[in-house]
Structure formats: C-alpha cells, structure tokens
C-alpha cells in the first residue's frame, strides 16, 4: 500500500467535516465538524512528515493541536454564553445581521 492513501483519507475526512459544518445547525456539532477538519489536516501533516522523512510535519500537527485546544475552549465558552442568552445553540438563530 502506498502511504499516499493516508492523504486521500485525510481529504475525505476534511470534506466530510466541511460539509458537516455547512449542513448542521447545532453549534456544538458544527464545532465538532471543525475539529474533524483539523484532525484531517493533522493526519495529512503526519503523512507528509513520513514522506519527507523529517519531523517538521509532526511539529506543525502538534501546534495545530494546541491551537485547536485553545479554539475549542474559547468556542465552547461562546456557545455556552450564547445558549445562556438565547436558550438555543442553533447557528441559524444567531442571524441577527440580516436586514
């Protein structure tokens, strides 16, 4: 098996995640899909690392994880406060920018 298949898998997961972001309304699920996309990227990076024979890809994946962790903390905090004020976690309910 060619390890390029990892890349195919990563792109597939990324696409699924992206589509999920577009389809789902529950902010938490949307967020999970974002995490899925990040993870797909990480998989690709790890595969790249293996292909190139150095560890830089893993480093980047590592940083991605850190950033993802920070993002999740803040994002979930936002969701919680949003839910508190609107009693809803639907991203469509927050369409206050509409005319």
């Amino acid at each position: 098996m060619n390890p390029v298949n990892y890349l195919y898998l990563a792109s597939l997961l990324f696409t699924i995640g992206a589509t999920g972001v577009l389809i789902r309304r529950n902010a938490i699920v949307v967020f999970m899909c974002v995490e899925l996309m990040l993870n797909a990227c990480n998989l690709a990076l790890v595969a790249f690392s293996r292909m190139h024979g150095n560890l830089d890809g893993q480093i980047i994946a590592f940083f991605t994880m850190v950033v993802a962790a920070a993002e999740v903390v803040v994002g979930l905090a936002i969701i919680v406060s949003l839910f508190r004020s609107r009693h809803s976690a639907s991203v469509d309910d927050a369409s206050l920018m509409k005319l």
């Binding site: 972001v21 577009l22 369409s95 509409k98």
Partner: peptide, 12 residues
C-alpha cells in the same frame, strides 16, 4: 440581497 440572508452557514 437575498444572498445576504444573515445565516452564517450560507456565508460558509
């Protein structure tokens, strides 16, 4: 302006 429907998902 219908494109600007205010839904974040549409923009996404």
């Amino acid at each position: 302006r219908r494109v600007q429907n205010g839904y974040a998902r549409s923009y996404a």
